[in-house]
Design a binder for these strands. Structure first.
Length: 493
RNA sequence: GGUUCUGUGGCCGAGUGGCUAGGCAGAGGUCUGCAAAACCUCGUACACCGGUUCGAAUCCGGUCGGAACCUCCA
């Protein structure tokens, strides 16, 4: 384990409501499962927040030296639209609407999802299994639950028997639900319900004649229930018990509750040691919702084509903005907030660039070791990225002071800081200056240097009109010159 | 209606019993040919009303906002 300060990582476990020391089941291996997207539509920003949050978890665990198997599924089998619908599948419905094959819809949105994730610099998971690719495993899981007597068949559909399950196991422990209250609060379904109790949930649904996505099963043609895929695939790839399960807050109930029940019913084991839930993202203080028009797609932010923001923002800025809040806090996105983050992000990136050119002094006259330790302390405290970033900004101040020659680090400390800063910013937080990296920097450097030299000559000749013209026109082109004691450098805005 | 969470300075957002969060914006200063950048200094915030405590933004109760879930949803 290469934890520089040998501090202990703690994780807030939704199941217990407490921060707990993270101790993997089989160190150095860590199994992590995160509920992925349903690919019947464009990913929206809220999804992205969740995946960015868990991307940092994945990256930090790796940084600490753990060997992580990160599984994030693609829900391509679709979920039921509603009970009254007798099994219309979201993907099937969309397919009919657009005259496409279901798998064509799935393909299109899966590719779109991957593109967005890549732009956000979200690492691909170790395994990205699809629900449709694991029908066999899901059927096996249903069989196991049936054999235990914890599910029942009605007209070719299989339902999980919550009441029976509760005779031996608690239901609702993750979400703090009281089952009696839940039943009391259940509205009467229109039409007939095959379920014995309103809390029962489908493991397998019989396909109606119009249902396009259907598979053979021991109970006739049908499709898997809403919650089954995650249980089947997490068990397959991570085992009956694994370390971390993540997802958005809204999945706590019923989805994750059902997952726990399914796994416990099948394997008699608590499937997950640490449950993690990321909070919601709101837009201008309100939840995003298509019906009210209060939505924002990632590509609409990048392009600036939207009704909420004054200008486009890069994916790196949005990622930075998201990491400036803790994953368990609600976060509100707005133009002002993004502008502030954009400035802060540039400051951080500038400092990173500055640091790479710094020369060592003979002695260190500031405490770089404890500065770095504070960043780790923050990350170890339930992945507290906002505090980690705040601590990085403290280091930024020193970087700028060192550039000005007012602070120094010895060779060893400077080398360590350079390595640390790069790894923390780029590898762990996943922040990189995409503007800079997309350019042919060597050639641009040479071109700008010509202009810098010309301006310098003009200044020496006291031809300030020309000097300022060069400076101002470059600024208009998004290139800002910076005069320092060591000479002039430039920044891309 | 029920469950869970939340309300912090101009904005965003950490903190959760006594001690500077941080970013952005704003004011003053240093530097500069002038600027910009950078650095230094400056804000005495914690929805409201009670209570516990030597001491509360932080704990408890109530009131009023906001969010999620209870129905597919990150």
């Amino acid at each position: 384990m290469k934890n520089p300060k040998s501090q202990q990582l703690t994780i807030y476990n939704t199941l217990t409501g407490q921060k707990e020391r993270f101790e993997p089941l089989n160190p150095p291996y860590v199994g992590m499962y995160v509920c992925g997207p349903t690919v019947y539509n464009d990913v929206h920003l809220g999804n992205c927040r969740t995946f960015i949050s868990f991307d940092v978890v994945f990256r930090y665990l790796q940084h600490l030296g753990y060997k992580v198997r990160y599984v994030r599924n693609i829900t391509d089998a679709g979920h039921l639209e509603n009970d009254a619908d007798e099994g219309e599948d979201k993907i099937a419905k969309k397919a009919r609407l657009e005259q496409l094959e279901p798998m064509e819809v799935v393909q299109r949105y899966t590719v779109g999802f991957h593109r967005i994730m890549e732009r956000f610099n979200v690492l691909p998971p170790s395994i990205e299994p699809t629900a449709t690719g694991h029908i066999v495993e899901q059927i096996q899981l249903i069989r196991k639950i049936l054999d235990k007597g914890l599910a029942y068949e009605v007209n070719g559909s299989i339902y999980f028997d919550v009441k029976k399950y509760m005779e031996s196991e608690p239901y609702g422990e993750l979400s703090g639900r009281n089952v009696d209250e839940l039943i009391a609060g259940t509205r009467e379904l229109e039409g007939q319900s095959e379920k014995r109790s309103p809390l029962d949930f489908a493991l397998w649904k019989k396909a109606s004649p119009t249902h396009i996505m259907r598979w053979e099963s021991p109970w006739g043609e049908g499709f898997p229930g809403w919650h089954l895929e995650c249980s089947a695939m997490s068990t397959k790839y991570l085992g009956e018990q694994f370390d971390i399960h993540g997802g958005g807050m809204d999945l706590k109930f019923p989805h994750h509750e059902c997952e726990i029940a399914q796994c416990k019913a099948a394997n008699n084991k608590k499937p997950v040691r640490y449950w993690m839930h990321a909070n919601m993202l709101t837009l201008n203080g309100k939840r995003m919702s298509k019906s009210t028009g209060n939505t924002l797609l990632p590509q609409e932010i990048f392009s600036g084509q939207n009704a909420f923001l004054s200008k486009p923002y890069s994916s790196a800025v949005v990622r930075f903005f998201i990491l400036q809040a803790h994953y368990r806090s609600p976060l509100d996105i707005s133009d002002e907030a993004l502008q502030a983050s954009e400035k802060g992000f540039r400051r951080l990136m500038e400092a990173k660039e500055t640091l790479s050119h710094l020369k060592a002094g003979t002695v260190s006259d500031w405490d770089v070791q404890s500065a770095m330790a504070r960043v780790y302390e923050a990350m170890n405290d339930d992945f507290n990225t906002p505090v980690a970033i705040a601590e990085l900004f403290e280091i930024v101040r020193y970087i700028n002071l060192m550039k000005a020659g007012e602070q120094h680090l010895c060779e060893k400390d400077l080398t360590e800081l350079k390595d640390f800063f790069h790894r923390m910013v780029e590898d762990v937080l996943g922040l990189k200056d995409e503007q800079r990296s997309m350019l042919d920097t060597a050639r641009l450097d040479a071109v700008i240097q010509v202009l810098i030299d010309m301006r310098q000559k003009a200044r020496q000749d006291r031809n300030y009109a020309l000097a300022d013209q060069i400076r101002d026109q470059l600024l208009k082109a998004g290139i800002q010159l910076k005069d320092t004691k060591e000479g002039t450098t430039y920044t891309l805005l």
